[in-house]
Design a protein around this nucleic acid. Structure first.
Lengths: 142, 142
DNA sequence: CTCACTGCAAACTATTTGCATCGTA
DNA sequence: TACGATGCAAATAGTTTGCAGTGAG
C-alpha cells in the first residue's frame, strides 16, 4: 500500500475535495501495483467495501487522477483502458491471447531520443507496448 | 495508390475470396497512406462508391487484413482504433488536443533490444506512441 | 453448386452525460 | 452554506454477433 497518504495529499493540493469514495478508489489503485486494473475492475473492488459507489464516480476520479499526473492511462489494444500508478519508466509486454500485462523496466528517455523531431511537437508521455505471446500461450511452443 | 494489386493478391493467397466490397476497402486503405483511418472513416469513404456496404463487412475485412499482417491496428489512446498499411518501422506522435497522428521513422528493433527479456515471451509487434501537443495546439506557446 | 461472404438489425462493452441530491471544506 | 461531488439512469460510441440470403470460385 505505497504512498497512500502522499497520493491523498497530492490530490488535495490540486484543489479536489477528498471524499470517502475518492479515498477508496485511491486505496484500491495503490493496492494494485502490478495489476494494471481497468475502470471496471477498480469499481468491482471498491464495491466490496462501498456497495453504492457508481461507475460514474470511478470514471470521474480516474480522469482526475490522470489529470494530476498521479496515474497513467494505458491503451494496450485490448479494447479497454488500463490504469497504473505513475512510477519508474517501463514498457508493457501484452499477451494477445490471455491479456496478461507485464512491466519491463527500461529507459523511455532513450526511446524519446530515437524518435525526437524538431518540429514544435511537445511530448508529454511515451508509451511502449510490446504485443506477443507469453510463454504459456505461445502456439509455436512444443 | 501503392501496391494495390499486390495487396489483393496477398489477401487471396491467404485463402480469402476477393469480393467487390473487400476490394473497395483495400483500395480506400491503400489510398490513405498518411491518414491512419478509423473503421468509421473507412466505411464512410467506401460508402461513397458503394452505398449499401455494411459496417460489419468493414470490421470483418479489417480483422482479416490484420490477421494476414497487411495492416496494423493502432491503439493510440483516442478511444477508437486506427489502421495503417504495414510499412517501414516508425513511432506515432499523437496530439492529445486535436488528435493529429504523425509517423516518425525510427528503428523499432532498437526499442525491442532496450526492453528485451529472456522469459519466453515471444513478441509479435512493437508500438511506440508519443503523446503531446502539436505546435498548433500547444497551450504553453506564446 | 457450395460454402464463404454480405447486409441488417440487434446486442454488447466501455465510457460519458444530465440532473436532482448530498456532503466536504 | 456554497459549490463541488455523488448516484442513478439513460445516452453514446465503438465494435461484435446471429442469421437469412447472395455470389465468388
Amino acid at each position: 500500500m505505497p504512498h497512500l497518504q502522499e497520493l491523498v495529499a497530492q490530490f488535495r493540493e490540486h484543489g479536489y475535495k477528498m471524499t470517502p469514495q475518492r479515498r477508496a478508489i485511491i486505496e484500491v489503485i495503490a493496492g494494485c501495483t502490478a495489476l494494471h486494473p481497468t475502470a471496471e475492475q477498480i469499481h468491482d473492488r471498491v464495491t466490496v467495501r462501498m456497495p453504492d459507489i457508481s461507475r460514474a464516480t470511478v470514471y470521474n476520479t480516474l480522469r482526475e487522477l490522470v489529470a494530476t499526473g498521479q496515474i497513467f492511462e494505458l491503451s494496450l489494444g485490448l479494447g479497454m483502458r488500463h490504469y497504473e500508478l505513475s512510477h519508474d519508466e517501463h514498457a508493457h509486454l501484452v499477451c494477445v491471447k490471455c491479456g496478461e500485462i507485464r512491466d519491463v523496466p527500461g529507459d523511455l528517455g532513450r526511446v524519446a531520443m530515437l524518435f525526437h523531431q524538431d518540429d514544435g511537437f511537445r511530448s508529454i508521455r511515451h508509451e511502449v507496448t510490446i504485443s506477443g505471446y507469453c510463454a504459456a500461450c505461445d502456439p509455436a511452443r512444443s
